[in-house]
Design a protein around this nucleic acid. Sequence first.
DNA 1: ACTATTAATCGTAATATTGCGATATACAAA
DNA 2: TTTGTATATCGCAATATTACGATTAATAGT
Lengths: 109, 109
Amino acid sequence: MGLIKTEKFSESQNQIALFAKAFGHPARVAIIQHLFKINACVCGDLVEEIGLAQPTISQHLKELKNLGLIQGTIEGTSVCYCINKDNWTAMKTLLNGFFNNNLDSNTCC
Amino acid sequence: MGLIKTEKFSESQNQIALFAKAFGHPARVAIIQHLFKINACVCGDLVEEIGLAQPTISQHLKELKNLGLIQGTIEGTSVCYCINKDNWTAMKTLLNGFFNNNLDSNTCC
DNA sequence: ACTATTAATCGTAATATTGCGATATACAAA
DNA sequence: TTTGTATATCGCAATATTACGATTAATAGT
């Protein structure tokens, strides 16, 4: 056990969970917020900004990259990371569909 | 280690991460979707609907309840769970603020 | 009181995540 | 070519999560 039974759920449910999990750690929230704030950035900035060790930040960046939410291009010795607009928009659409259910008709016992 | 260093992050960042983590498992996504769909429900429904064991569902419900996203009232031998409207709205506001950053000005290298 | 039903809790095994020191890689500058 | 700088990867320890069988608790119906 300790293994998620993805086969019990729809593709959409698994996708929502994967994206949500990406934001389920404050370091990754902070990374995304920083990328939005300065519009493009390198990993070194983030290590200072966030205050975790460099390998730890690198690992969090990798997770966000694997999901396609950010992308990195090599610039000499450093890497320039930024939000992947298309995938970010797609993620937002998926999660908004989940969040914006109508609560008005929701009557509780 | 294996312990999140919450002290390195703002309260808002930690809150966003906590809510996101709640949706980071497809079973919890499915539970919320089912609650929206039928507008009020009992745990038994969910065990059938989702196909995980009863203790597992109960555990997932507990996590959502601890975060305040759902609430349960006892109805005889069963429990009636439903979305907590106020907290759901607050969560939505917080996460929307995070998602709806302006991407137009985001120029990549 | 006894039995059935529903949901919570306990205990535990399997797996995943987090964090970082040490090291590797890749490029730039001297 | 050597040295410095930036980032990725490896390996591991600590902790968290997932899942469920067994049990418990609480109520309903007989």
